[in-house]
Computed example of a mutant assay.
Amino acid sequence: MMRNLSSIIKPKRLVAEATLTSSASAVVIDRGNTNSRIWEAIQLAFHVGAGGITFSGTNYLALKLRESDDNSTFNVVGANTILFGAENPAGTAFAQVPDTNGFVRLINAAKAAADTDPFRVDYVGSKRYLEATITFGGTHGAGTLVGLWAVLGYPNIMPVI
């Protein structure tokens, strides 16, 4: 018998779509908080509209990821804990191997158009907690539309069919 999609994924809105001019609060995803269920996979979908300003090395927008075992001490994610989709491999479309800040998407050049589809990145690390932050660097007098979703997948405990 076939299971429905809701049995293997759980979408979560982390940052509601809004026009922002400064960093949103960090959001922590707990992979193991539902009836002893542990979600084996996390995909983040980060949507960015047309730049409200001309992005540069000083005035930028980034998606920052950090991980933790205890929800207290966080470290930036490593290159071996992140996978990019075929539509945005590292080194293109502002995607990058995590740097020392934990940035996996860094927009630091002109962005005249909104993303057609969200930028997606998979966390494949083993930590229970993943922290995601939409980070604005510099001064952003005009806002940029942003939104962030997580999709948790492959639970270790499946529902009864």
Rank of each mutant, 00 (worst) to 15 (best):
I53A: 04
D122S: 09
K12E: 06
T58S: 15
S56Q: 07
T133H: 10
L61G: 00
R13S: 05
V97S: 12
L83P: 05
L83Q: 10
F119A: 01
F74K: 08
T116D: 14
S25A: 11
Y60H: 15
F74Q: 10
F84T: 00
T139Y: 15
R66Q: 10
F55C: 02
G52W: 01
P11A: 02
F119H: 06
R105T: 04
W39P: 05
D30E: 12
A110F: 12
R13T: 03
V76Y: 05
A132C: 03
Q43N: 09
A26W: 02
I134Q: 06
V97N: 09
I9F: 09
A24K: 09
I8A: 05
E67Y: 03
T100I: 01
A24L: 13
T133Y: 13
T81S: 05
S126H: 00
K111L: 09
G78Q: 06
A18M: 12
I9L: 12
L61F: 02
R13I: 03
K111A: 04
V97T: 13
I42N: 08
H47W: 15
G138I: 09
N35C: 13
L65G: 00
F94C: 07
D69A: 08
A41V: 14
F46S: 04
Y123F: 07
F94P: 09
G91S: 11
P89D: 06
T34S: 15
